[in-house]
């Protein structure tokens, strides 16, 4: 155990846990912290994971982030262009970890449009991207770098990009149990959908954070168990692997002011 770790590194280790029991699936972490989390999982407790170079090749060992120098040879194991990604997505052998702009109490997420009307949104973002297909085809997790009621909103998402545990939107012939949203890792805590009727449940608190803080910064009601464990802190081995996978320290720029991991 090390006391010298950043919040970003704590989040990477907590997020890596999402992939621990996945077996042989494609781990797709979009963004620096999710990608490092998937890489850490693949290099430690789930070496069966598959990963791409974020471009067109499947790798047998994850690439470090950013410029790798002219001499670097990546460990390709197959071609994996974007069209083939969908063959994988629709086979369900994938776990994506993404950072939507809004998440509601059903685990529905929004990556597309905020406010205004759909015809003329106040803020247009990316679009639905691959979220609809990801959410109905395979397991998914979320990473939220700034836990707040602006992300975890009181009502339903302005635009629902991904299916969640919402009985009102359940397609004919499907069960809510067909939806498989795993972990939500934030700068405050780890949550899952293990509450009653898939309610969001507090799973662990980052060092120095209270359940009250999480409740206050979440726009919907969450289940808070009588005892909530602390998030497992990084080991020296994990920190060394993270440093090796992120040689340009991109992780230092992912959470505002790059705080220390223990805020007590």
């Amino acid at each position: 155990m090390s006391n010298d770790y950043t919040l970003a590194e704590l989040c990477i280790c907590a997020a890596a846990e999402a992939f621990r029991d996945d077996g042989e699936v494609l781990a797709t972490g979009i963004g620096v912290i999710p990608r490092l989390a998937a890489s850490l999982a693949m290099k430690t407790f789930n070496t069966d994971l598959m990963m791409t170079d974020s471009e067109a090749w499947m790798l047998s060992s994850p690439n470090p982030l950013g410029d790798r120098g002219a001499d670097f040879v990546q460990a390709n194991e197959s071609w994996m262009g974007f069209s083939r990604i969908f063959d994988n997505v629709w086979s369900s052998k994938r776990h994506a970890m993404l950072g939507p702009t809004q998440v509601d109490r059903f685990g529905q997420s929004n990556t597309s449009a905020l406010g205004g009307s759909y015809e003329a949104p106040k803020t247009m973002m990316l679009g639905a991207r691959g979220f609809p297909g990801n959410s109905i085809s395979h397991q998914n997790s979320f990473f939220v770098p700034a836990h707040s009621t602006r992300v975890f909103i009181e009502g339903e998402c302005d635009f629902v990009s991904s299916i969640g545990y919402n009985p009102q939107r359940l397609p004919k012939g499907r069960s809510l149990d067909d939806v498989d949203i795993r972990l939500i890792i934030t700068d405050l805590c780890v949550m899952d959908f293990g509450g009653a009727n898939h309610q969001v449940r507090l799973r662990s608190l980052h060092p120095g954070i209270s359940a009250e803080q999480v409740v206050e910064k979440t726009g919907f009601e969450i289940e808070v168990p009588a005892t909530v464990p602390g998030t497992t802190v990084p080991t020296a081995e994990q920190l060394a692997i993270i440093a090796e996978m992120d040689p340009h320290n991109q992780r230092a720029y992912q959470i505002k002011d790059n705080p220390a991991g223990d805020r007590s």
Binding site: F86, S112, G116, A120, P121, M124, M125, G130
Partner: peptide, 27 residues
């Protein structure tokens, strides 16, 4: 640059009709 600035402006002005779908649906 994750968000395409000129597309956003067109959407936010209500200047274009859209059919918003999933990446795989387009395929």
């Amino acid at each position: 640059i994750p968000l395409e600035a000129h597309f956003r402006q067109a959407r936010q002005r209500g200047a274009i009709e859209v059919m918003e779908i999933d990446e795989g649906m387009m395929l």
